[in-house]
Amino acid sequence: MTGKLKRLLALGAVVLTTATLAWAGSDTQPKASGAPKPVITKSVKAEQCVEDTAYMRRNHMKVLDGHRDKTVIEGIRTKKHSLKECINCHASEKTGSVAAAKDDFCVSCHSYAAVKIDCFECHSTKPKGSMAMHPLNAETAHLKHALAVNADVKVSAEEMAKVAQ
């Protein structure tokens, strides 16, 4: 390595360090490249979450984890700690979902914290009965046209229930 190149590198390092110190020292400096802060929209359906808000922010995953085993394995379907009720309360008014747009309740915080949500690989992100907003899945995407034509002859789950009664 030549002496000239060494000097150049040293200069570069000094410049970088100075810039970092200047940025850290100033309060007014805007965080140009920081991650956008999560948007937390208060649920319109209730005043207070089923647990204390601060507790839920840190522990919602533990609460859900305990409840899911009780529900799946034992068949206990209490509403208090069920994911379905989280979705019922927190689905966004705009998208009807907790995870469809980047500002939706679950996604907003999770992308800020860079924690992948696995829940919605299997669970619907929307409250019950909002099927109209569901996109077609990989299996049915090619049927977009047929589905639109037949939309009004499809039997809904509600209709099925009525027929049975």
């Binding site: 669970h123 992100t125 409250p127 019950k128 569901h134 996109p135 077609l136 899945n137 990989a138 299996e139």
Partner: peptide, 9 residues
């Protein structure tokens, strides 16, 4: 295949 949020609640 991924069901892309077409599951029922």
């Amino acid at each position: 295949e991924s069901l892309n949020d077409t599951q029922l609640a």
